[in-house]
Amino acid sequence: MIELHRNTAEHLTWAAVQVGALGAVAATTGLGPAGWGAGIGCAIVTLVLLRRSMRRHDRTSLGHADRITLVRAALTAVIAALVVDGAGPAIIVTLGVLALISDFLDGRLARRTGTVSVFGARLDMEVDAFLILVLSAHVAVAFGVWVLSIGVMRYLFVAASWVLPRLRGELPPSFARKTVAAVQGIVLVAASSGIVPHAGVLVACALLALVWSFGRDVLWLSRSRT
């Protein structure tokens, strides 16, 4: 019971961190009602999903790497609020770079401290997926709705797995898959700046790489089931 109360307190603390980050942005760059709504909505969804995931994986506490991932979740919530609010590129790129750095740090810390876990990997993946979705929505304003394909592809894969059980299998570790996933965030943040030449071509190449990566995984899962 004491551990449960501690978990609740920490979860609420992270929700407060997200709201506080929104307040800091609102005080410096401004944030309208739509942005506030999007940001607070992200904070609530993060809190609910975090609690459910910890119960599902029988986790009673968060590790240091998990907390870095939650920092990225807070940054993503702020970026989502800014995108909805139509903010300029400078603040979005700055926060995007910080989010990408945190993505590098949490995995490295988990490996060095021997705290790699299924829960941590899933939390990291879900936060990354939402960050890519938010960034793709922002870049789509400049280059077209096709850019959203980058952000929604992972969610389409999950939806397909509900219909096709063969897609629910465990994929083997892949450096290529990790590289392609990392490239999506880097390219989208670069394209968000508005100063990178031929950014549309870079985004298109990133999308093609992502299609190849998902296609390869789908093919592997189909063959392994067979």
Rank of each mutant, 00 (worst) to 15 (best):
F143P: 01
W220Q: 13
G144D: 10
M153T: 09
F157P: 06
T94M: 11
T94C: 10
G185D: 05
V139R: 02
L133Y: 05
P197Y: 09
R72E: 09
A73I: 00
P172F: 03
V116Y: 00
V180I: 15
G185T: 05
G39P: 09
A74K: 04
R108Y: 12
E170M: 14
G107Q: 07
S117W: 04
I195T: 13
G86Y: 07
F214D: 09
K178N: 03
S161C: 06
P173A: 14
W162C: 11
T8K: 05
P165M: 08
I40E: 07
V189I: 09
A140L: 08
V45G: 03
V134I: 15
R223I: 02
A121E: 15
A27Q: 08
S53C: 02
V127E: 11
V141H: 13
A159P: 02
F175G: 08
S192Q: 11
L167T: 08
D128N: 03
L202D: 01
V211E: 04
G194L: 07
G63C: 05
T76V: 11
A9Y: 06
V19T: 13
S149R: 00
G63S: 12
V147N: 01
I186F: 12
G32L: 11
G120W: 02
P165K: 05
A24F: 12
D124R: 02
L4M: 12
R72P: 01
L171W: 01
A191S: 07
L210C: 03
I40L: 13
V127C: 06
V17C: 11
L131C: 03
M54E: 15
V203D: 01
R154C: 09
G20H: 02
E3F: 01
L50T: 09
L50Y: 05
V48H: 07
I195S: 10
D58Y: 00
V163P: 06
W162R: 13
A121Q: 12
T8D: 14
A24D: 07
I40G: 06
V141F: 07
D103W: 07
H64W: 13
L207W: 14
I2A: 12
A199D: 03
R67C: 12
S192V: 07
N7G: 15
L207C: 09
G107C: 09
I44A: 15
R168Q: 15
R59S: 06
L188E: 07
A27H: 05
V211H: 01
T226R: 15
H198Y: 13
P197H: 08
S149A: 15
V84W: 01
V84G: 04
A99D: 06
L221H: 01
F119D: 13
T13R: 09
R67F: 08
D58P: 00
H64I: 14
D217W: 01
I132T: 05
A140R: 02
R59V: 08
F130I: 14
W212K: 00
A74P: 04
D124H: 02
A182D: 05
W36E: 11
G185I: 02
R122Q: 15
A176R: 12
M1G: 13
L70Y: 04
H11K: 00
W212Y: 14
L47P: 01
D124V: 03
